[in-house]
Design a protein around this nucleic acid. Structure first.
Lengths: 228, 228
DNA sequence: ATGCGAATGGAACATCATTCCATTTAGCTT
DNA sequence: AAGCTAAATGGAATGATGTTCCATTCGCAT
């Protein structure tokens, strides 16, 4: 099931793990998380569901593999910027954009964080933090916090996108509906949320995300990293 | 379907939204996320699946409601500590412990962040940040970042717990297995992850989480919050 | 008493991941 | 070149799920 590198494929246009993953990504991108079914996949590949199971252990395995393709592609484009700080910014921004373009990646990553796709991100962040001069003892907690923040935002965006799709709403109408709900909350119990309602529809997710990264970097620098 | 406050319940031990939610929480706590099915629920309540749908719109509605019970209970215990900073710490720690005790809460919260359970957390964090002196324009991005971090960690923990349960592993064996996998990664491509493998089984999730909160608070203070 | 709507619960439906297995295919052996 | 073997295929069957449907039951107002 692993080494398909040696002998060429059997049939003229036979199945292969890569072809299956590629088709899965297309289905996930167009039909969302719920669109990926073994029936839809087997139809796209002109085969039966059983044949797919020869190359792929189960649906989760397939999701992780598809996710890894996106993550690997993203990380490759983000490594080795001008400074370690810029590399972290590039990784964060790259992952944000990737999870925005492929909303299913967010939830897939959360479910498979200890596995290869998550490790790729950990490695990229960890090397940069090390280069930033974060002390050894603080490296893991810091990487963990950064990763969790990135995955949290990604998961959130994915959930919002899926929620909007499920109700047939555009992103703007979804935000507008949430804003209206918030503005009707009890004034005594929810003063803060109410006051945020107005600016909700106009806010920029990407800018907010990067603001969080900057708070983080600022916190890392002010709590003991020696400059390099 | 909403106001059950007025007339008393019809039958001696009739169904009610609250009884359904209470039973759901028990099932979720003992059987995990996948344990909650309308069949298991109807068996526990000695009724049929159809009766439940009279009180509850669908499974997602049920999950959000169960989640809200936990979040409301947690937030009530965390508000109004000595200082705004301590309140934020209490909320973060309270939510971490709640999501640890009820791993399903993490994923439920991610799926329903704009709804009531998420709003409760936003409100608690927002009021505290306001009291901390965070400028108006920075309040929303900061709350959003904090919430996303908390939800990210929670979702992560939930996924790890479920992953371990699915394979019948204890938490320690799960960490040990991940540690072994990481230590066998390619030395050139993954130097950081490899070097973290050894300390993975012994690390303290809760301490790491709080370290992230401290980085955050440190970042918030060093980027423009005036002391109060 | 009696009628009516709220509430019930069991059966039925559609869909899904997954398993099973008879059949086909390609590469290797002789 | 012929035959054998294991890899690969694909369609049918399985079991479980969320959800809908509807005949029936219950309690309150009349």
């Amino acid at each position: 099931m692993a080494n398909r590198t040696d002998s060429s494929q059997r049939r003229g246009e036979s199945l292969s793990r890569d072809r299956i993953i590629e088709a899965s990504i297309e289905i996930l991108d167009t039909g969302g998380e719920g669109g990926l079914t073994f029936r839809a996949l087997s139809e796209k590949l002109a085969t039966g569901p059983g044949a797919i199971y020869w190359h792929v252990a189960n649906k989760n395995d397939l999701l992780v593999a598809a996710c890894d393709v996106i993550v690997a592609r993203t990380m490759q484009a983000c490594m080795a910027k001008a400074s370690p700080e810029d590399t972290i910014r590039a990784i964060a921004l790259g992952m944000f954009d990737a999870m925005n373009a492929h909303p299913w990646v967010g939830s897939a990553l959360v479910q498979a964080s200890g596995q290869l796709p998550g490790v790729r991100i950990v490695e990229g962040l960890g090397q940069s933090l090390r280069a930033l001069g974060v002390p050894d003892a603080a490296q893991w907690p810091t990487v963990s916090a950064l990763l969790n923040y990135i995955l949290g935002v990604g998961g959130q965006n994915a959930a919002n996108t899926q929620f909007a799709i499920a109700r047939g709403l555009e992103r703007s109408s979804f935000l507008h509906a949430t804003s209206t709900t918030w503005s009707q909350l009890d004034a005594d119990a929810y003063p803060f949320t109410r006051s945020m309602a107005a600016q909700l529809p106009a806010h920029d997710d990407r800018a907010d995300f990067m603001a969080g990264i900057e708070i983080f970097l600022s916190g890392v620098k002010s709590s003991g990293a020696r400059s390099h």
